[in-house]
Amino acid sequence: MVSHLYLHIPYCTTKCDYCDFYSVAGNKEVSDEYVYAMFEEIKDRYNGDKVDTVFFGGGTPSLLSGRQVSRILGTLNLSVFCEVTIECNPETINLEKMRAFKSAGVNRISIGVQSFDDAKLKAIGRYRACNPLEKFDMALSVFDNVGIDLMYALPGQKLSEIRDEISRIPEQVKHVSYYSLTLEEGTNFYERNKRIHPIPDDLQADMAEIIVKQLHEKGLNRYEISNYSKVGYECKHNLAYWNYEDYLGIGAGAASTIKGSRIENVQDIQKYIRGNKVASDYKLSEEERENERIMMGLRTVYGILWEERYAGVLQKYPDLLSLKEGRIVLTDKGFQFHDTIVSELML
């Protein structure tokens, strides 16, 4: 039974330099052909089970019209408390759209601000011609559960600027995703080898500490390496990934994990529309699944169930790992060394 659905909308107006998701720039809207292809895929792969979470990700899912969102959600059997999230680029939303999304069934939005400082944004190839705070007012007038996406370790960023960014997060925001800028393979940064001066690890670590602390002061508690929320407002959809539950990914470039298989869709809108939807269907080995379970589970404050074989690593890194109620979890410092710990715990 799959109760988590991810819907990938690989359309953007422009491509940001740091982005490593599949998306195609130059679009002001999402074509009906694509939405229709998604229906087809849903018809083929979704068996009508009750769905607990739906997540529209991208790309820029807020390029979808209210009607498109409504038609997609209409094909699904949503449970009463189903969390339905849509990621929004502030440029693409207005009050009308917010209302349309809401009446379509969306109950959680996450606004991709990345930074309140336009110059910092420009440095990472993202342009903005609106005041993001106005968009928050708009969103908050419609939705209760509004989140914000931010980035730190932006080129030239100083520690004091982080404090400033955090102070500008509206009080009513329930959820914060705060990522450090990462140079990923396949991004414009990486491919075009644009000259950016990465923030040294020392400073990044200091920034992370400040973020954790300041957000906590605002009632936003870290529950995952890069995610913070007010009590009860954790993102259920993302928690499903971290709990290593099955999920069905719909759309070009989406991935699914179902019954131990990883299915990856083609990263090509045209092929997807023509019906060649799946690029690879790979049966994970038991070892790979165990490794993924550890890798995902340790990202959150809930950690993973204790097993005897973790004892050596726990002993080796007493300040990075702790044992809580039969679960092994990373400490605040430990989150900064997630990769080190996981690679040691992996089979």
Binding site: I225, S226, G253, F335, F337, D339, T340
Partner: peptide, 13 residues
């Protein structure tokens, strides 16, 4: 000081 991947969601696993 750090060794961590910032993001990890369904498509990254």
């Amino acid at each position: 000081r750090k060794n961590v991947l910032a993001k990890c969601y369904g498509g990254d696993i």
